[in-house]
């Protein structure tokens, strides 16, 4: 087998193993904490009878390993169980909300990724001069802003004071694409704000790292124009680090979504998760945790696979 295929397969297998370990952590980690889900839901003042009833209902009296196996198998076959609070199917509730969240994240990524790479290139090109300084200043400011602060600042200025956009991002089934888009403008702006500076700065660092290689000097000494140097010599070597940067920030975006959805009352996964954390609805929280972790791990695997594929040493072994 070609070593690249072998490495990619290995990486994918490792990802699956990691996912399995994560599921165990999410399941047993919660079990190991003091108190149990039933106690947490009913609070300290619950009567023993109520507690016992709920335990029975939640299946908490079964052996732990059996419950884990049951839960994991259900998860893989699309059955995530039911929410404790209202008895609704979790899978059904997640279905629509996941779509909403991905819609939001997709547009945020679509705007921020090309913008960040372009600006990162500009900053690298003008390394040390004013465009670069401006960018690092803005970066400092935005990494110090938690998502909800950025969210309220944007909301207050653009929606409340200037009345440019609606303050709430209500979306519902049957809404047209254009209406949906106009509803999510504010959360998308906030998400772009939150990841842009980071992504830009890391892109800049990755490009500068490549530009400082000796082979770039070789290319310059061949008399090639700056653009040719970048396109022909820097770019092929910068793909892997830049993809890494993008994936890392998209993973970051996934977390940002949770908070931003709460700020704008957007009916996505994040709001669903936070709602049910407040209600102590463990099955819902575990399911959402698994989904977020899977997206996060998936993005990281993708970045690693691109690195493997882009490495000439691996593609053309001795």
């Amino acid at each position: 087998m070609h070593p690249v295929i072998k490495l990619v397969v290995q990486r994918l297998a490792l990802g699956l193993l990691l996912m399995l370990a994560v599921s165990a952590l999410i399941f047993f980690g919660v079990e190991a904490l003091p108190g149990d889900a039933a106690q947490a839901m009913l609070g300290q003042s619950a009567t023993p009878e109520a507690l016992a009833n709920l335990r029975e209902k939640m299946g908490l009296n079964e052996p732990m390993l059996w419950r884990y196996g049951h839960w994991l198998f259900g998860f893989m076959t699309g059955d995530m169980g039911v929410a404790l609070t209202n008895g609704e199917s979790i899978a059904k509730a997640v279905g629509g909300r996941l779509g909403n969240t991905l819609f939001l994240a997709f547009w945020a990524a679509l705007i921020s990724v090309p913008l960040a790479i372009t600006l990162g290139l500009v900053a690298a090109r003008y390394n040390g001069r004013w465009p670069d300084r401006l960018i690092s200043g803005i970066t400092l400011a935005t990494i110090s802003l938690p998502e909800f602060v950025a969210g309220y600042l944007v909301l207050y200025i653009l929606a409340v004071k200037l009345h440019w956009f609606p303050a709430m991002s209500m979306v519902f089934p049957g809404m047209g694409v254009f209406e949906r888009l106009s509803a999510i403008i504010l959360p998308v702006i906030v998400l772009v704000m939150v990841v842009l500076a980071h992504m830009m700065r890391m892109t800049r660092a990755a490009i500068l790292n490549v530009m400082q290689s000796a082979y770039i000097e070789t290319a310059e000494l061949k008399g090639l124009s700056p653009l040719t140097v970048i396109w022909r010599h820097a770019f092929p070597n910068a793909i892997a680090p830049v993809v890494n940067v993008v994936m890392l920030n998209l993973a970051y975006l996934v977390v940002g979504v949770v908070v931003v959805e709460v700020v704008f009352v957007y009916p996505g996964m994040g709001q669903y998760l936070v709602d049910h954390v407040t209600k102590r609805d463990l099955p819902v929280v575990q399911a959402c945790g698994m989904i977020f972790a899977a997206v996060y791990i998936g993005l990281n695997i993708f970045a690693d696979v691109v690195s493997i594929l882009a490495n000439p040493r691996l593609r053309h072994p001795k």
């Binding site: 290689s213 000796a214 082979y215 000097e217 070789t218 290319a219 010599h233 092929p236 070597n237 000439p312 040493r313």
Partner: peptide, 8 residues
């Protein structure tokens, strides 16, 4: 070793 572009 450093002066040659590893990708070409």
């Amino acid at each position: 070793a450093a002066a040659f572009n590893p990708a070409k």
